[in-house]
Simulated assay, not measured.
Amino acid sequence: MPRSAAASARASARDGVSARAAGAGSAQTGQRPAARPRWWAELALVVLVYAAYSAGRLLARGDESTAVAHGLAILRIEKALRLNAEHPLNRLFTGTPALGVPADFIYASLHYLVTPAVLVWMFRHRAAFYRAARNWLMLATLLGLAGFTLLPTCPPRLLAARHGFVDTMAHFSEYGWWGDEASAPRGLGEMTNQFAAMPSLHVGWALWCGVLLWRHARTPLVRRLGAAYPVVITVVVMGTANHYFLDAVAGAVVMAAGALLTGPALRVADRARDRVRAAMPVRYGPRPALSRLFTVPAQTPPKSPESPPRSHASPIVSGGCETSAGERFPGRRTRGSTPGTSSADDTPATAR
């Protein structure tokens, strides 16, 4: 068997085992497996959560002095731990447009393209795992929003020039749509939170995509791309001076925490839904079919008490008249009779 076919068969078997395990768990608890959610309800939910997330980022803006202090503290910790990979990557991307320009496009676009694409793919092709994946993403995003609020952090690109960082997106702004203000379109920089660096949800969402693609994709190439995606995004966010390395680590921690909270959150949501359904009063019975409302039932005549019961095995078709054994009807022909003879005897009809 070719290697790609064998890998595809293993992935299919793995998904089948997981789906059967989920079904068995539902059977043991007496609950039916959850049906596929409605696409329009899911779209409205995702838009609502993302709008709340974007509004929360704007409201969570910290003052500049606090954000700069947090950014410098992170930089000192990284230097002490010898984790400062931002400086060499930033110099490489700034001095090599063939690396810096594609990295800027990756940072400004893939975050908003790959994540929704993976979510839609899970909805259409991995429906049994979609609800858990969606809740995982939303919980981790809310945790990230809490991080922006509690720890506003200035990204490396906004530090003073003496700290040795260059904003590659501003440096190569003539190639893209973002202008001089990070990944926001030109003129819309004031509508973004420039101090939402800790944790890095660019890395967190990329890790979410990578785990789902590695876990549920059946093509080996797609699985490898899924595994490489968070690594590429981590290098890009550091090389473009948009995040520190510890921001990327915090993004992975946030996604891990969201994954741990997904199971309990689903159980709480299921119990709440069951309680709401149980508390809803049933005011009316089941509605009859529309055709039954206009159907007149057939009137069957009552049985006469004098009529004898009829046998279905040997029905009488003579109108209630029976003959005794050997009796003949007048004029009935027998096998030996001729046209000139009567059926009652063998004498000619004229002699009678």
Rank of each mutant, 00 (worst) to 15 (best):
D247S: 12
C209I: 04
R134S: 09
G189Y: 00
H163P: 11
A160Y: 06
L221S: 11
R224D: 04
A248M: 10
T141W: 02
T219W: 08
P155F: 15
H216G: 02
G164W: 13
F245M: 09
Q194S: 07
R223F: 00
V237E: 04
G179Y: 14
P185H: 05
N135K: 12
P230L: 04
A196W: 07
V166M: 06
V236F: 13
A133K: 01
G239L: 09
R223M: 09
N193D: 02
M238Y: 08
M169H: 06
H216F: 14
L246V: 15
G147N: 06
R186C: 00
P156F: 15
A160L: 11
G144N: 11
Y244M: 11
E190I: 03
T234E: 10
Y130K: 06
L225K: 05
E181I: 03
V235S: 07
F245R: 06
R157L: 15
E174V: 02
H202M: 03
H171M: 00
Y229H: 09
A228H: 08
T192V: 07
G187Y: 00
M198P: 04
A250L: 08
T240M: 11
A170V: 00
V231F: 08
V203R: 04
R157D: 12
T153K: 12
R215Q: 09
I233W: 14
S183E: 02
R186Y: 01
Y130F: 12
M169W: 06
C209H: 05
H216W: 08
T234H: 10
G189S: 01
A217F: 08
